[in-house]
Write a protein that binds this DNA or RNA. Structure first.
Lengths: 188, 188
DNA sequence: ACCACCATGTAACAGGTTACATGATTAA
DNA sequence: TTAATCATGTAACCTGTTACATGGTGGT
């Protein structure tokens, strides 16, 4: 038994979903897209790579399901060790923020291009944020289960908060970069 | 001359900083930390790896600087092709959002641990956000140059907006998860 | 006839991290 | 004497991506 090097995020995501019931790689890919997809969206190939790994580690078992009229499946089921592994992972601190924002990099060096270029990037990102809000509304409607602590709902609230911050910022950038070519430092 | 496969973010960051004047890997590491560090912070080894690459691509030149009383340097200077490469990179759309938020993953699966665990993560993140705000204030004070379009300042505004969204969200989570163990769905 | 969905995987590559290795000078 | 700063790099590893490969079934 692996004494326990800790879980990578995708491993944790897959294992976490597996905790709600056994499923195949194909199923998991869809489950990911419909749940954690907007803040953790691995390629399907990654899911298929991760699953045998989890079996190796003793965190899941694999079972062959024969089907007629469609391809057979490999169905995975979480083990007790697997559940322990998630709890373990959940209790470890997640490293600092995930920095890494290529858009900001482009804005930072914006003086090496013309303002229009930067504006396009920012507007595109704002459109994405608006799209995200719509998707979150969709998810809210689809979920709508709960009373007690609804954790997925909390992540949707985050998504919305993030999207709104993004939109506010985009508007700010637009104001700064368009009409007001006047020397002005309106530090908020 | 490389016809141009496009720049990776770290390459762009290094090249972008090089545009303000020649410098060594060591200098660049510090420049990164003091400028784009809070949204793009590569390890120093990455910087040292990237620099010779940029020379290979014809985007920078390297020059040996002999020093007394301290180690010699390799000093890099951006070329005309290098400047063109940044403009090129700036004009390309940056892919969607960088999803990838391990903290949210932990929150999402929060029901597989106890609420206290989740709260600790969220509080830790809020503390980081508050720290970031302080650092941004610091940077604002240090910068304070400009009239005309001040791009770095725009990225700091983003940082602040992000931090504040994070703090609001953390407070929300705290309210939801602490005293109110009551079945309630206060969809904002 | 064609496309979408079901279903699984491999191979090549990219982009990054940590840890290791070295060594002089200067300030406390 | 001990630690920080200056200074550069390599090696091993991890996590992830895209593109490729295959093939039956069911709806339009």
């Amino acid at each position: 038994m692996g004494p326990g090097r800790q879980l990578a995020p995708t491993e944790a995501a897959v294992l976490g979903l597996l905790a709600y019931g056994e499923s195949s790689g194909y199923d998991l890919k869809r489950a990911v897209d419909r749940s954690v997809g907007y803040f953790w969206g691995p390629a399907k190939s990654r899911i298929y790579t991760v699953l045998p790994r989890l079996v190796e580690l003793g965190y899941a078992t694999r079972r062959d399901v024969v089907q007629r009229n469609r391809p057979n499946k490999q169905v995975y089921r979480i083990t007790r060790a697997g559940r322990a592994a998630i709890r373990e992972w959940l209790s470890e601190p997640s490293g600092p923020t995930p920095d890494r924002n290529p858009l900001l990099l482009k804005v930072f060096f914006g003086d090496q291009a013309d303002p229009e270029t930067v504006l396009e990037h920012v507007r595109a990102r704002r459109a994405q944020a608006e799209q995200l809000k719509r998707e979150l509304d969709e998810l809210d409607r689809a979920a709508c289960e709960g009373d007690d602590a609804d954790y997925p709902a909390l992540t949707r609230v985050y998504g919305r908060e993030w999207a709104e911050a993004m939109i506010r910022w985009a508007n700010h950038v637009e104001r700064e970069l368009t009409h007001s070519r006047t020397p002005k430092s309106s530090r908020k």
